[in-house]
Design a binder for these strands. Structure first.
Lengths: 246, 246
DNA sequence: CGGGCACTTGAAGTCGATCAAAGTGTGTGG
DNA sequence: CCACACACTTTGATCGACTTCAAGTGCCCG
Protein backbone atom coordinates (compact mmCIF):
# COMPACT_ATOMS: atom_id res chain seq x y z
CA UNK A 1 0.00 0.00 0.00
CA UNK A 2 1.21 3.47 -0.80
CA UNK A 3 1.00 6.35 1.60
CA UNK A 4 0.38 9.69 0.03
CA UNK A 5 0.69 12.95 1.87
CA UNK A 6 -2.23 15.30 1.55
CA UNK A 7 -1.79 17.36 -1.61
CA UNK A 8 -2.04 21.12 -1.61
CA UNK A 9 -4.60 22.66 -3.83
CA UNK A 10 -2.64 24.49 -6.51
CA UNK A 11 -3.44 27.98 -5.34
CA UNK A 12 -2.47 27.36 -1.75
CA UNK A 13 1.08 26.51 -2.40
CA UNK A 14 2.18 29.90 -3.61
CA UNK A 15 0.79 33.33 -3.88
CA UNK A 16 -0.29 33.80 -7.47
CA UNK A 17 1.30 37.18 -8.05
CA UNK A 18 4.56 36.11 -6.54
CA UNK A 19 4.71 33.14 -8.83
CA UNK A 20 4.38 35.26 -11.92
CA UNK A 21 6.82 37.87 -10.68
CA UNK A 22 9.40 35.21 -10.02
CA UNK A 23 8.75 34.29 -13.65
CA UNK A 24 9.26 30.53 -13.37
CA UNK A 25 6.57 30.34 -16.01
CA UNK A 26 9.13 31.54 -18.51
CA UNK A 27 10.87 28.26 -18.00
CA UNK A 28 7.87 26.17 -18.91
CA UNK A 29 8.40 24.18 -22.07
CA UNK A 30 5.97 26.44 -23.93
CA UNK A 31 9.00 28.59 -24.57
CA UNK A 32 9.91 26.04 -27.20
CA UNK A 33 7.24 27.50 -29.46
CA UNK A 34 6.61 30.98 -28.08
CA UNK A 35 8.84 34.02 -28.27
CA UNK A 36 9.65 36.25 -25.31
CA UNK A 37 6.74 38.66 -25.66
CA UNK A 38 4.31 35.80 -26.08
CA UNK A 39 5.70 34.15 -22.98
CA UNK A 40 5.14 37.39 -21.08
CA UNK A 41 1.55 37.38 -22.22
CA UNK A 42 1.24 33.70 -21.37
CA UNK A 43 2.40 34.35 -17.84
CA UNK A 44 -0.68 36.53 -17.36
CA UNK A 45 -2.92 33.50 -17.46
CA UNK A 46 -0.66 30.91 -15.88
CA UNK A 47 0.94 30.67 -12.48
CA UNK A 48 3.53 28.57 -10.76
CA UNK A 49 2.79 25.84 -8.24
CA UNK A 50 5.09 23.77 -6.07
CA UNK A 51 4.55 20.36 -4.54
CA UNK A 52 6.74 18.52 -2.08
CA UNK A 53 7.88 15.00 -2.87
CA UNK A 54 5.17 12.46 -2.11
CA UNK A 55 2.27 14.86 -2.39
CA UNK A 56 -0.81 14.20 -4.46
CA UNK A 57 -1.19 16.63 -7.36
CA UNK A 58 -4.37 15.42 -9.02
CA UNK A 59 -6.51 12.36 -8.42
CA UNK A 60 -8.64 10.18 -10.61
CA UNK A 61 -12.19 11.37 -11.15
CA UNK A 62 -11.29 14.75 -9.77
CA UNK A 63 -12.52 17.58 -12.00
CA UNK A 64 -9.77 18.50 -14.42
CA UNK A 65 -9.49 22.22 -13.79
CA UNK A 66 -5.85 22.65 -14.66
CA UNK A 67 -3.39 21.78 -17.34
CA UNK A 68 0.12 21.55 -15.92
CA UNK A 69 3.53 21.76 -17.49
CA UNK A 70 6.36 20.27 -15.45
CA UNK A 71 8.93 23.04 -14.90
CA UNK A 72 11.20 20.80 -12.90
CA UNK A 73 11.12 17.69 -10.77
CA UNK A 74 9.43 14.40 -11.49
CA UNK A 75 5.84 13.23 -11.29
CA UNK A 76 4.31 9.77 -11.47
CA UNK A 77 0.91 8.96 -12.98
CA UNK A 78 -0.96 5.85 -11.98
CA UNK A 79 -4.26 4.06 -12.11
CA UNK A 80 -5.71 1.81 -9.44
CA UNK A 81 -8.01 -1.20 -9.41
CA UNK A 82 -10.66 -1.34 -6.70
CA UNK A 83 -8.61 -3.87 -4.73
CA UNK A 84 -5.53 -1.66 -4.71
CA UNK A 85 -3.49 -3.11 -7.55
CA UNK A 86 -1.62 -0.22 -9.08
CA UNK A 87 -0.23 0.47 -12.54
CA UNK A 88 2.05 3.44 -13.02
CA UNK A 89 1.36 4.70 -16.52
CA UNK A 90 4.16 7.18 -16.73
CA UNK A 91 6.89 9.20 -15.12
CA UNK A 92 6.75 12.85 -16.13
CA UNK A 93 9.86 14.98 -16.45
CA UNK A 94 10.71 18.57 -17.18
CA UNK A 95 8.62 19.86 -20.07
CA UNK A 96 6.03 17.08 -19.93
CA UNK A 97 2.36 17.88 -19.76
CA UNK A 98 -0.04 16.77 -17.10
CA UNK A 99 -3.77 16.98 -17.54
CA UNK A 100 -4.09 17.08 -21.28
CA UNK A 101 -7.47 15.49 -21.83
CA UNK A 102 -10.85 15.31 -23.39
CA UNK A 103 -13.09 14.52 -20.45
CA UNK A 104 -14.05 16.48 -17.41
CA UNK A 105 -12.06 14.34 -15.02
CA UNK A 106 -8.46 13.28 -14.79
CA UNK A 107 -8.15 9.62 -15.77
CA UNK A 108 -5.30 9.00 -13.30
CA UNK A 109 -3.68 9.99 -10.05
CA UNK A 110 -0.56 12.13 -10.15
CA UNK A 111 1.94 12.26 -7.30
CA UNK A 112 5.12 14.28 -6.98
CA UNK A 113 8.06 11.90 -6.93
CA UNK A 114 10.54 14.63 -6.10
CA UNK A 115 9.81 18.20 -5.15
CA UNK A 116 8.25 19.65 -8.28
CA UNK A 117 7.49 22.99 -9.77
CA UNK A 118 4.59 23.19 -12.17
CA UNK A 119 3.36 25.79 -14.60
CA UNK A 120 -0.37 25.77 -14.12
CA UNK A 121 -2.93 26.75 -16.77
CA UNK A 122 -6.51 27.04 -15.50
CA UNK A 123 -8.77 25.12 -17.85
CA UNK A 124 -11.09 28.02 -18.59
CA UNK A 125 -8.05 29.91 -19.83
CA UNK A 126 -7.01 27.00 -21.99
CA UNK A 127 -9.36 27.83 -24.84
CA UNK A 128 -8.22 31.41 -24.73
CA UNK A 129 -4.70 30.06 -24.72
CA UNK A 130 -5.37 28.21 -27.93
CA UNK A 131 -6.91 31.24 -29.59
CA UNK A 132 -4.15 33.62 -28.61
CA UNK A 133 -1.31 31.27 -29.32
CA UNK A 134 -2.15 29.10 -32.28
CA UNK A 135 1.23 27.47 -32.16
CA UNK A 136 0.43 25.98 -28.78
CA UNK A 137 -2.18 23.61 -30.14
CA UNK A 138 0.26 22.15 -32.65
CA UNK A 139 2.85 21.87 -29.93
CA UNK A 140 0.45 19.99 -27.69
CA UNK A 141 -0.47 17.73 -30.58
CA UNK A 142 3.17 16.93 -31.13
CA UNK A 143 3.63 16.17 -27.45
CA UNK A 144 0.54 14.00 -27.41
CA UNK A 145 1.56 11.94 -30.43
CA UNK A 146 4.95 11.44 -28.91
CA UNK A 147 3.37 10.18 -25.71
CA UNK A 148 1.13 7.93 -27.75
CA UNK A 149 4.12 6.28 -29.39
CA UNK A 150 5.68 5.77 -25.97
CA UNK A 151 2.45 4.28 -24.67
CA UNK A 152 2.47 1.73 -27.48
CA UNK A 153 6.04 0.83 -26.68
CA UNK A 154 4.96 0.32 -23.08
CA UNK A 155 2.11 -1.95 -24.12
CA UNK A 156 4.61 -4.15 -25.93
CA UNK A 157 6.64 -4.24 -22.74
CA UNK A 158 3.73 -5.04 -20.46
CA UNK A 159 2.08 -7.51 -22.76
CA UNK A 160 5.03 -9.44 -24.15
CA UNK A 161 8.34 -8.87 -22.40
CA UNK A 162 9.88 -10.93 -19.61
CA UNK A 163 10.84 -9.40 -16.27
CA UNK A 164 14.48 -9.11 -17.31
CA UNK A 165 13.59 -7.54 -20.65
CA UNK A 166 11.31 -5.06 -18.92
CA UNK A 167 13.88 -3.83 -16.47
CA UNK A 168 16.56 -3.64 -19.16
CA UNK A 169 14.17 -1.62 -21.35
CA UNK A 170 13.45 0.69 -18.45
CA UNK A 171 17.11 1.25 -17.67
CA UNK A 172 17.99 1.92 -21.30
CA UNK A 173 15.14 4.43 -21.55
CA UNK A 174 16.22 6.22 -18.37
CA UNK A 175 19.80 6.28 -19.56
CA UNK A 176 18.77 7.89 -22.84
CA UNK A 177 16.57 10.44 -21.14
CA UNK A 178 19.12 11.50 -18.56
CA UNK A 179 22.17 11.78 -20.79
CA UNK A 180 22.74 13.64 -24.00
CA UNK A 181 26.04 11.90 -24.22
CA UNK A 182 25.69 8.51 -25.92
CA UNK A 183 28.48 7.03 -23.87
CA UNK A 184 27.38 8.19 -20.43
CA UNK A 185 26.47 5.27 -18.24
CA UNK A 186 25.04 6.60 -15.01
CA UNK A 187 21.39 6.61 -14.10
CA UNK A 188 19.73 8.21 -11.14
CA UNK A 189 16.40 6.68 -10.13
CA UNK A 190 14.48 8.92 -7.75
CA UNK A 191 11.67 6.38 -7.38
CA UNK A 192 11.54 3.36 -5.09
CA UNK A 193 11.75 -0.26 -6.23
CA UNK A 194 8.02 -0.61 -5.73
CA UNK A 195 7.41 2.27 -8.13
CA UNK A 196 9.59 0.62 -10.73
CA UNK A 197 7.65 -2.59 -10.13
CA UNK A 198 4.29 -0.90 -10.57
CA UNK A 199 5.58 0.77 -13.71
CA UNK A 200 6.79 -2.50 -15.22
CA UNK A 201 3.85 -4.64 -14.13
CA UNK A 202 5.97 -6.68 -11.70
CA UNK A 203 6.43 -7.02 -7.93
CA UNK A 204 9.21 -5.36 -5.91
CA UNK A 205 10.67 -8.77 -5.19
CA UNK A 206 10.97 -9.57 -8.87
CA UNK A 207 12.51 -6.17 -9.63
CA UNK A 208 15.02 -6.73 -6.85
CA UNK A 209 15.84 -10.23 -8.07
CA UNK A 210 16.34 -9.03 -11.65
CA UNK A 211 18.61 -6.23 -10.44
CA UNK A 212 20.66 -8.88 -8.67
CA UNK A 213 20.76 -10.97 -11.81
CA UNK A 214 21.93 -8.02 -13.92
CA UNK A 215 24.61 -7.31 -11.33
CA UNK A 216 25.79 -10.91 -11.35
CA UNK A 217 25.97 -10.84 -15.13
CA UNK A 218 28.06 -7.64 -14.89
CA UNK A 219 25.57 -5.64 -16.94
CA UNK A 220 25.08 -3.05 -14.21
CA UNK A 221 26.62 -2.01 -10.93
CA UNK A 222 24.80 -0.61 -7.92
CA UNK A 223 26.68 1.00 -5.05
CA UNK A 224 25.26 -0.74 -2.00
CA UNK A 225 24.80 2.52 -0.18
CA UNK A 226 23.11 4.51 -2.93
CA UNK A 227 20.61 2.13 -4.45
CA UNK A 228 19.12 4.92 -6.50
CA UNK A 229 22.28 5.21 -8.55
CA UNK A 230 22.87 2.68 -11.29
CA UNK A 231 25.94 2.32 -13.42
CA UNK A 232 25.45 0.55 -16.71
CA UNK A 233 28.52 -1.51 -17.48
CA UNK A 234 27.55 -2.77 -20.93
CA UNK A 235 25.03 -0.63 -22.76
CA UNK A 236 25.09 -2.69 -25.92
CA UNK A 237 24.42 -5.95 -24.16
CA UNK A 238 21.76 -4.39 -21.94
CA UNK A 239 20.03 -3.10 -25.06
CA UNK A 240 20.13 -6.58 -26.54
CA UNK A 241 18.58 -7.98 -23.39
CA UNK A 242 15.84 -5.33 -23.58
CA UNK A 243 14.84 -6.58 -27.02
CA UNK A 244 14.96 -10.24 -26.17
CA UNK A 245 18.22 -10.90 -28.05
CA UNK A 246 20.44 -12.92 -25.77
CA UNK B 1 3.21 -16.73 -36.87
CA UNK B 2 0.95 -14.41 -38.79
CA UNK B 3 0.63 -14.45 -42.53
CA UNK B 4 0.05 -11.09 -44.10
CA UNK B 5 -0.92 -10.58 -47.67
CA UNK B 6 1.10 -8.08 -49.62
CA UNK B 7 -0.35 -4.62 -49.12
CA UNK B 8 -1.19 -2.33 -51.99
CA UNK B 9 0.50 0.98 -52.09
CA UNK B 10 -2.22 3.53 -51.43
CA UNK B 11 -2.35 4.96 -54.92
CA UNK B 12 -2.59 1.61 -56.64
CA UNK B 13 -5.80 0.54 -55.07
CA UNK B 14 -8.00 3.14 -56.67
CA UNK B 15 -7.78 5.77 -59.28
CA UNK B 16 -7.34 9.05 -57.46
CA UNK B 17 -9.88 11.06 -59.39
CA UNK B 18 -12.50 8.38 -59.12
CA UNK B 19 -12.09 8.29 -55.38
CA UNK B 20 -12.73 11.97 -54.97
CA UNK B 21 -15.64 11.96 -57.38
CA UNK B 22 -17.26 9.17 -55.47
CA UNK B 23 -16.85 11.52 -52.51
CA UNK B 24 -16.18 8.92 -49.85
CA UNK B 25 -13.93 11.56 -48.34
CA UNK B 26 -17.05 13.39 -47.27
CA UNK B 27 -17.67 10.54 -44.92
CA UNK B 28 -14.36 10.83 -43.15
CA UNK B 29 -14.71 11.85 -39.54
CA UNK B 30 -13.30 15.30 -40.32
CA UNK B 31 -16.90 16.20 -41.11
CA UNK B 32 -17.37 16.38 -37.36
CA UNK B 33 -15.56 19.70 -37.33
CA UNK B 34 -15.76 20.95 -40.91
CA UNK B 35 -18.79 22.26 -42.77
CA UNK B 36 -19.79 21.15 -46.24
CA UNK B 37 -17.78 23.68 -48.22
CA UNK B 38 -14.72 22.99 -46.14
CA UNK B 39 -15.15 19.28 -46.74
CA UNK B 40 -15.30 19.94 -50.47
CA UNK B 41 -12.05 21.84 -50.22
CA UNK B 42 -10.58 19.09 -48.07
CA UNK B 43 -11.41 16.49 -50.67
CA UNK B 44 -9.05 18.32 -53.05
CA UNK B 45 -6.07 17.23 -51.00
CA UNK B 46 -7.24 13.85 -49.81
CA UNK B 47 -8.21 10.71 -51.60
CA UNK B 48 -9.84 7.42 -50.83
CA UNK B 49 -8.02 4.11 -50.51
CA UNK B 50 -9.29 0.59 -50.06
CA UNK B 51 -7.60 -2.44 -48.57
CA UNK B 52 -8.85 -6.00 -48.50
CA UNK B 53 -9.02 -7.84 -45.20
CA UNK B 54 -5.64 -9.15 -44.18
CA UNK B 55 -3.60 -6.69 -46.19
CA UNK B 56 -0.76 -4.64 -44.75
CA UNK B 57 -1.49 -0.91 -44.74
CA UNK B 58 1.66 0.50 -43.17
CA UNK B 59 4.63 -1.16 -41.56
CA UNK B 60 7.02 -0.21 -38.80
CA UNK B 61 9.96 1.94 -39.81
CA UNK B 62 8.33 2.67 -43.13
CA UNK B 63 8.37 6.39 -43.95
CA UNK B 64 5.17 7.95 -42.70
CA UNK B 65 3.94 9.62 -45.85
CA UNK B 66 0.24 9.49 -45.13
CA UNK B 67 -2.19 10.27 -42.39
CA UNK B 68 -5.26 8.06 -42.68
CA UNK B 69 -8.76 8.38 -41.35
CA UNK B 70 -10.75 5.16 -41.18
CA UNK B 71 -13.91 5.66 -43.26
CA UNK B 72 -15.16 2.18 -42.58
CA UNK B 73 -13.91 -1.25 -41.66
CA UNK B 74 -11.47 -2.20 -38.95
CA UNK B 75 -7.68 -2.03 -38.69
CA UNK B 76 -5.27 -3.52 -36.17
CA UNK B 77 -2.03 -1.89 -35.06
CA UNK B 78 0.78 -3.97 -33.64
CA UNK B 79 4.41 -3.99 -32.66
CA UNK B 80 6.79 -6.92 -32.91
CA UNK B 81 9.82 -8.08 -30.98
CA UNK B 82 12.76 -9.45 -33.00
CA UNK B 83 11.81 -13.03 -32.11
CA UNK B 84 8.25 -12.60 -33.37
CA UNK B 85 6.36 -11.91 -30.17
CA UNK B 86 3.53 -9.59 -31.07
CA UNK B 87 1.56 -6.99 -29.15
CA UNK B 88 -1.52 -5.51 -30.76
CA UNK B 89 -1.68 -1.93 -29.51
CA UNK B 90 -5.09 -1.07 -30.86
CA UNK B 91 -8.04 -1.86 -33.04
CA UNK B 92 -9.10 1.12 -35.14
CA UNK B 93 -12.70 1.74 -36.10
CA UNK B 94 -14.63 4.20 -38.20
CA UNK B 95 -13.41 7.73 -37.55
CA UNK B 96 -10.14 6.69 -35.92
CA UNK B 97 -6.86 8.10 -37.13
CA UNK B 98 -3.90 6.13 -38.36
CA UNK B 99 -0.49 7.66 -38.74
CA UNK B 100 -0.72 10.61 -36.40
CA UNK B 101 2.87 11.03 -35.32
CA UNK B 102 5.92 13.05 -34.60
CA UNK B 103 8.65 11.05 -36.26
CA UNK B 104 9.42 10.21 -39.81
CA UNK B 105 8.47 6.59 -39.51
CA UNK B 106 5.38 4.74 -38.38
CA UNK B 107 6.01 3.18 -34.96
CA UNK B 108 3.82 0.15 -35.71
CA UNK B 109 2.43 -2.16 -38.34
CA UNK B 110 -1.15 -1.70 -39.46
CA UNK B 111 -3.18 -4.48 -41.08
CA UNK B 112 -6.74 -4.41 -42.37
CA UNK B 113 -8.85 -6.72 -40.22
CA UNK B 114 -11.86 -6.40 -42.47
CA UNK B 115 -12.07 -4.77 -45.86
CA UNK B 116 -11.42 -1.13 -45.13
CA UNK B 117 -11.86 2.22 -46.76
CA UNK B 118 -9.48 4.95 -45.73
CA UNK B 119 -9.39 8.68 -46.26
CA UNK B 120 -5.79 9.38 -47.07
CA UNK B 121 -3.99 12.69 -46.41
CA UNK B 122 -0.51 12.94 -47.96
CA UNK B 123 1.84 14.19 -45.29
CA UNK B 124 3.13 17.15 -47.28
CA UNK B 125 -0.47 18.33 -47.48
CA UNK B 126 -0.92 17.90 -43.76
CA UNK B 127 0.71 21.19 -42.84
CA UNK B 128 -1.38 22.95 -45.45
CA UNK B 129 -4.33 21.12 -43.96
CA UNK B 130 -3.60 22.60 -40.57
CA UNK B 131 -3.21 26.10 -41.97
CA UNK B 132 -6.38 25.99 -44.01
CA UNK B 133 -8.49 24.31 -41.41
CA UNK B 134 -7.49 25.49 -37.98
CA UNK B 135 -10.20 23.44 -36.39
CA UNK B 136 -8.54 20.25 -37.59
CA UNK B 137 -5.60 20.60 -35.26
CA UNK B 138 -7.84 20.91 -32.21
CA UNK B 139 -9.82 17.96 -33.43
CA UNK B 140 -6.71 15.84 -33.81
CA UNK B 141 -5.57 16.92 -30.36
CA UNK B 142 -8.89 15.80 -28.91
CA UNK B 143 -8.60 12.46 -30.68
CA UNK B 144 -5.03 12.01 -29.49
CA UNK B 145 -5.83 12.77 -25.85
CA UNK B 146 -8.69 10.34 -26.01
CA UNK B 147 -6.40 7.65 -27.37
CA UNK B 148 -3.91 8.47 -24.65
CA UNK B 149 -6.50 7.85 -21.96
CA UNK B 150 -7.37 4.54 -23.59
CA UNK B 151 -3.70 3.61 -23.76
CA UNK B 152 -3.37 4.17 -20.02
CA UNK B 153 -6.40 2.02 -19.38
CA UNK B 154 -4.73 -0.66 -21.51
CA UNK B 155 -1.51 -0.43 -19.50
CA UNK B 156 -3.50 -1.12 -16.34
CA UNK B 157 -4.99 -4.14 -18.09
CA UNK B 158 -1.69 -5.49 -19.36
CA UNK B 159 0.27 -4.79 -16.23
CA UNK B 160 -2.15 -5.73 -13.51
CA UNK B 161 -5.22 -7.66 -14.63
CA UNK B 162 -5.73 -11.43 -14.67
CA UNK B 163 -6.64 -13.27 -17.86
CA UNK B 164 -10.30 -13.35 -16.93
CA UNK B 165 -10.37 -9.66 -16.05
CA UNK B 166 -8.66 -8.81 -19.34
CA UNK B 167 -11.14 -10.66 -21.49
CA UNK B 168 -14.09 -9.28 -19.52
CA UNK B 169 -12.70 -5.76 -19.93
CA UNK B 170 -12.27 -6.33 -23.65
CA UNK B 171 -15.82 -7.60 -24.07
CA UNK B 172 -17.33 -4.75 -22.08
CA UNK B 173 -15.37 -2.24 -24.18
CA UNK B 174 -16.47 -3.85 -27.43
CA UNK B 175 -20.05 -3.94 -26.22
CA UNK B 176 -19.97 -0.23 -25.44
CA UNK B 177 -18.41 0.65 -28.73
CA UNK B 178 -20.77 -1.38 -30.86
CA UNK B 179 -24.03 -0.41 -29.21
CA UNK B 180 -25.50 2.97 -28.44
CA UNK B 181 -28.20 1.13 -26.53
CA UNK B 182 -27.09 0.49 -22.95
CA UNK B 183 -29.07 -2.72 -22.82
CA UNK B 184 -27.90 -4.30 -26.08
CA UNK B 185 -25.92 -7.44 -25.44
CA UNK B 186 -24.53 -8.65 -28.74
CA UNK B 187 -20.93 -8.28 -29.83
CA UNK B 188 -19.40 -9.06 -33.17
CA UNK B 189 -15.68 -9.77 -33.12
CA UNK B 190 -14.19 -9.68 -36.61
CA UNK B 191 -10.75 -10.69 -35.32
CA UNK B 192 -9.44 -14.18 -34.58
CA UNK B 193 -8.78 -15.56 -31.11
CA UNK B 194 -5.06 -15.08 -31.67
CA UNK B 195 -5.62 -11.38 -32.35
CA UNK B 196 -7.58 -11.04 -29.13
CA UNK B 197 -4.74 -12.86 -27.38
CA UNK B 198 -2.09 -10.56 -28.82
CA UNK B 199 -4.20 -7.57 -27.84
CA UNK B 200 -4.63 -8.76 -24.26
CA UNK B 201 -1.08 -10.03 -23.75
CA UNK B 202 -2.20 -13.68 -23.54
CA UNK B 203 -2.04 -16.82 -25.71
CA UNK B 204 -4.89 -18.14 -27.88
CA UNK B 205 -5.20 -21.13 -25.59
CA UNK B 206 -5.75 -18.94 -22.57
CA UNK B 207 -8.27 -16.77 -24.40
CA UNK B 208 -10.13 -19.88 -25.44
CA UNK B 209 -10.09 -21.30 -21.93
CA UNK B 210 -11.37 -18.06 -20.43
CA UNK B 211 -14.17 -17.93 -23.00
CA UNK B 212 -15.11 -21.43 -21.91
CA UNK B 213 -15.04 -20.37 -18.28
CA UNK B 214 -17.26 -17.35 -18.95
CA UNK B 215 -19.66 -19.61 -20.81
CA UNK B 216 -19.75 -22.10 -17.95
CA UNK B 217 -20.43 -19.27 -15.52
CA UNK B 218 -23.29 -18.13 -17.77
CA UNK B 219 -21.77 -14.71 -18.27
CA UNK B 220 -21.69 -15.05 -22.05
CA UNK B 221 -23.02 -17.32 -24.75
CA UNK B 222 -21.30 -18.19 -28.01
CA UNK B 223 -23.17 -19.90 -30.84
CA UNK B 224 -20.94 -22.81 -31.72
CA UNK B 225 -21.15 -22.07 -35.42
CA UNK B 226 -20.46 -18.35 -35.30
CA UNK B 227 -17.60 -17.95 -32.88
CA UNK B 228 -17.28 -14.30 -33.81
CA UNK B 229 -20.65 -13.51 -32.26
CA UNK B 230 -20.85 -13.16 -28.52
CA UNK B 231 -23.96 -12.66 -26.45
CA UNK B 232 -23.40 -11.13 -23.05
CA UNK B 233 -25.83 -12.66 -20.59
CA UNK B 234 -25.00 -10.56 -17.55
CA UNK B 235 -23.46 -7.20 -18.30
CA UNK B 236 -23.35 -6.07 -14.69
CA UNK B 237 -21.55 -9.16 -13.50
CA UNK B 238 -19.16 -9.12 -16.46
CA UNK B 239 -18.31 -5.53 -15.63
CA UNK B 240 -17.61 -6.55 -12.04
CA UNK B 241 -15.32 -9.29 -13.27
CA UNK B 242 -13.50 -6.79 -15.49
CA UNK B 243 -12.65 -4.69 -12.44
CA UNK B 244 -11.61 -7.55 -10.25
CA UNK B 245 -14.73 -7.48 -8.09
CA UNK B 246 -15.89 -11.05 -7.68
C1' DC C 1 20.78 1.85 20.60
C1' DG C 2 16.43 0.49 18.59
C1' DG C 3 12.59 0.91 15.60
C1' DG C 4 11.09 1.49 11.00
C1' DC C 5 11.46 1.41 6.19
C1' DA C 6 13.32 0.01 1.89
C1' DC C 7 15.47 -3.59 -0.14
C1' DT C 8 17.10 -8.41 -0.70
C1' DT C 9 16.88 -13.32 -0.52
C1' DG C 10 14.71 -17.83 0.09
C1' DA C 11 10.92 -21.35 -0.26
C1' DA C 12 6.57 -22.58 -1.81
C1' DG C 13 2.61 -21.80 -4.68
C1' DT C 14 -0.04 -20.41 -8.82
C1' DC C 15 -1.51 -18.61 -13.08
C1' DG C 16 -0.79 -18.66 -17.57
C1' DA C 17 2.52 -20.61 -21.13
C1' DT C 18 3.88 -24.44 -23.66
C1' DC C 19 3.40 -28.77 -25.76
C1' DA C 20 0.29 -32.06 -27.63
C1' DA C 21 -3.90 -33.70 -29.53
C1' DA C 22 -8.52 -33.62 -30.79
C1' DG C 23 -12.58 -31.03 -32.45
C1' DT C 24 -15.06 -27.94 -35.80
C1' DG C 25 -16.15 -25.52 -39.84
C1' DT C 26 -14.99 -24.33 -44.69
C1' DG C 27 -13.60 -24.80 -49.12
C1' DT C 28 -11.79 -27.63 -52.92
C1' DG C 29 -11.38 -31.19 -56.07
C1' DG C 30 -12.50 -35.73 -57.37
C1' DC D 1 -22.00 -35.09 -52.74
C1' DC D 2 -18.36 -36.84 -50.24
C1' DA D 3 -13.53 -36.87 -48.73
C1' DC D 4 -9.75 -34.56 -47.70
C1' DA D 5 -6.95 -30.60 -46.44
C1' DC D 6 -6.45 -26.65 -44.00
C1' DA D 7 -7.14 -23.08 -40.70
C1' DC D 8 -8.92 -21.95 -36.47
C1' DT D 9 -10.48 -23.26 -31.92
C1' DT D 10 -10.86 -26.05 -27.90
C1' DT D 11 -9.28 -29.13 -24.36
C1' DG D 12 -5.85 -31.67 -21.66
C1' DA D 13 -1.28 -32.36 -19.32
C1' DT D 14 2.85 -30.49 -17.93
C1' DC D 15 6.02 -26.83 -17.09
C1' DG D 16 8.01 -22.57 -15.65
C1' DA D 17 8.19 -17.59 -14.66
C1' DC D 18 6.66 -14.70 -11.59
C1' DT D 19 4.00 -14.11 -7.28
C1' DT D 20 3.23 -14.79 -2.58
C1' DC D 21 4.63 -15.46 1.86
C1' DA D 22 8.29 -15.22 5.09
C1' DA D 23 12.82 -14.00 6.85
C1' DG D 24 16.73 -11.47 6.93
C1' DT D 25 19.88 -7.32 5.92
C1' DG D 26 21.28 -2.64 5.88
C1' DC D 27 20.52 2.15 6.55
C1' DC D 28 18.61 6.26 8.52
C1' DC D 29 17.04 8.91 12.26
C1' DG D 30 15.13 9.74 16.55
Amino acid sequence: MITIKQGNSPLQSKNKEDACDGCPVRHSSFCEVLDKSEMDKLSQITHSVNFKAGHLIVSEEQDANYLYNIVNGMVELYKLLPDGRRQITGFLHQGDLLGLLVGEEYPYHAVALTDVELCCVPKDSANKLFQDFEKIEGYLLKKASHELAEAQERMLLLGRKTAEERLATFLIAQLKRQNKDEKANEIHLPMMRSDIADYLGLTTETVSRVFSKLKKERLVEIPSSEKSNIIVLDIKRLKDVSEGLS
